[in-house]
Design a protein around this nucleic acid. Structure first.
Lengths: 367, 367
DNA sequence: CTGAAAGCGCTTACAG
DNA sequence: CTGAAAGCGCTTACAG
């Protein structure tokens, strides 16, 4: 069943049917609108979006872009000896933060009337290709963990609005939504100091030497440093640890902490991701360290699982639902008004106190 | 840049360019192929897929369909008082099993040259609409937790091949891939009995009275019953508990176990999902029950997190990567050969022994 | 191996 | 408020 056939049965032109479908109510009299709509309903007519895209030069498709955080070559190298591990490396949704975020985005974009094309990518070239293949109306991209000058340049050539999640590119005219990472790092650190901690380590999700390459992590780290400074703790007493961001990396972090002597071991950890924090806590507990009695931990993200682990994780909560709504709304605005550029929305964070922070060992309130 | 312009510059017809793009090498001489390809590369020409879909009557789009496991009305009811909870109810990717599976599927389908349209849905009607909107080549649907006769009927009207994950509909001509759930239930139960357990409860992810409505869970349960039977344990000593399948429901399960007196408490749990098992273990440990010393637990799924919790979860492993590959391959075959129908692929399961099963309390090997 | 022409099912100025 | 016509950028028989 095509629009033309509907038009014939209704005794109107194709254009009128088109106007009814697209709710251009001003262009159709109420009477004909009703008559046409009845026939559409009768046959459960569904317009062909390819034809629509072709003539309207837009598609109602939003590309949801998920960077794979390793290179194609790295994956292929691993695949030779361990295909299962290579498969999970390419699985962009095995990261809990990413998958929950994508789930919210799907739900919001659907409600806004868009179709979602899901796409993992190694290189930003693939994005441009996808945009042109389908004339996508807009893109939402989750931040690649590490910045890459080349990808950035490619992204600048985008044909449609792009909303970047978790990153602000002030120089590009891109749209973005992020959270107040600096404040999150500050709040987390402050919480530890409130309980008398002075030896607090910051656990990053990237290697220490690459922290500056990740704005998000870098901001959290700066917030941590600022909180120490404001409390009069010298920067030389700060400590930056770096791991990757899976549960397993969290365990590596925990094992590292266990390997430290009590004197050099931090009494509190400000961790840049709940995933790592949860892995680290598991490993530390197995190794005989009590959380929070021996070591306090503050996470970041407030994942669904974070309130359910034992002890429940004290963490910086970012409202992922609000973040997804903001991203969807921002993108829609930019699609409707192509003039718009450079908008950035910051979602606030808050500290959620649960069970992983307590008084520093040997510390007595008021002492 | 359009195909026509490429054709002009190459001094050939549009059809020849089309044949070059689509690798119909038999229809183009090597010499012209090279000349045309060079021009395509020069301009980085990317074909317009909408135009292609419109004329070719297929799209290379695969719809990835994720059922929301509650009704629209339920979500709207909750939204009145607790919008955040309503948002997470609609978030189909907040379930770890689902998100990991979708991540694998995305990766496989991309490698097969398809585009992925991600779509959550409340009602199967939405699927049919999406199919016609975009003339999708095929669908992959994750199983709705609970069967629904109406959705089933609608699905039978599908215009394109549909691969259902985790369910075999022998009566419909649908394609499916699942795992050997019966055997999984059997293996899990056998593992407990090997360690002397006789009071073993089966924990379902749906309410006990609805277990028969979920083939997957029902098969696991049947496997459990068969294992008991084969070991001479009377069916009256079996026990069926039912919760939903989030970490929080797992905690409810654990709390229920804690509420039981030592006499009536099972000594082992065969749990139909790792998510529940992990939640239950967390709650039981907090309540003072030791795992596995006081109670053994076997999970199901072998999620990435399952090897990382404490103690590491003994579980039935299903190879999700293989499952996704099978689904992709099956769908591709069905797209290429529309005659195909009713194929079902079963992926085998295996027991992964880790740390949550030990000797039953009071049991001595050989006693 | 190559081409000219028709057609896929919509939307968009342009007219009235 | 409504229509006839052109056109979006491809593919597909049909011919040669």
């Amino acid at each position: 069943m095509t629009l033309k056939e509907i038009a014939e049965e209704a005794g109107v032109s194709a254009m009128t049917v088109s106007n009814v479908i697209n709710h251009n109510d001003a262009k159709v009299s109420e009477e004909t609108r009703k008559r046409v709509q009845a026939i559409i309903d009768k046959y459960r007519y569904v317009p062909n979006m390819s034809a629509r895209s072709l003539s309207a030069r837009n598609s109602r498709i939003i590309a949801l872009l998920l960077p794979v955080d390793v290179t194609k070559e790295q994956v292929e190298e691993v695949a030779k000896t361990d295909p299962l591990r290579a498969a999970i490396m390419k699985n962009t949704l095995s990261d809990y933060y990413v998958s929950v975020m994508v789930g919210y985005l799907e739900s919001k974009l659907k409600d806004l009337g868009y179709y979602i094309m899901l796409r993992s990518f190694f290189h930003a070239d693939e994005i441009l290709e996808l945009q042109r293949h389908w004339q996508v109306d807009g893109c939402i991209m989750l931040l690649p963990k590490i910045e890459d000058e080349e990808n950035r340049k490619i992204l600048a050539q985008s044909r449609c609005p792009v909303v970047i999640i978790d990153r602000n590119y002030p120089d590009l005219k891109m749209l973005s939504v992020g959270v107040n990472d600096y404040r999150g790092g500050y709040l987390a650190t402050q919480e530890c100091m409130r309980y008398g901690h002075r030896r607090i380590a910051f656990v990053s999700t990237v290697e220490p030497e690459r922290v500056t390459l990740s704005t998000v992590i870098h901001s959290r780290y700066q917030g941590y440093l600022a909180a120490l400074r404001d409390a009069g703790i010298p920067e030389k007493d700060s400590q930056l640890l770096g791991f990757s961001s899976t549960l397993l990396d969290g365990r590596h972090c925990g094992e590292y902490i266990l390997s430290l002597s009590p004197e050099e071991r931090p009494t509190a950890l400000v961790v840049a991701s709940d995933t790592i924090a949860i892995g680290a806590i598991a490993a530390m507990k197995e190794g005989g360290l009590r959380v929070p009695e021996d070591i306090s931990v503050v996470g970041y993200d407030d994942l669904p699982m974070s309130s359910l682990v034992d002890p429940a994780l004290t963490t910086i909560s970012q409202d992922l639902d609000a973040k997804a709504s903001a991203a969807g709304a921002l993108l829609k605005m930019a699609i409707d008004d192509p003039q718009m550029e450079g908008e950035h929305i910051t979602i606030d964070v808050k500290l959620v106190e649960r069970g992983t922070v307590t008084w520093a060992p040997g510390y007595h309130a008021g002492s």
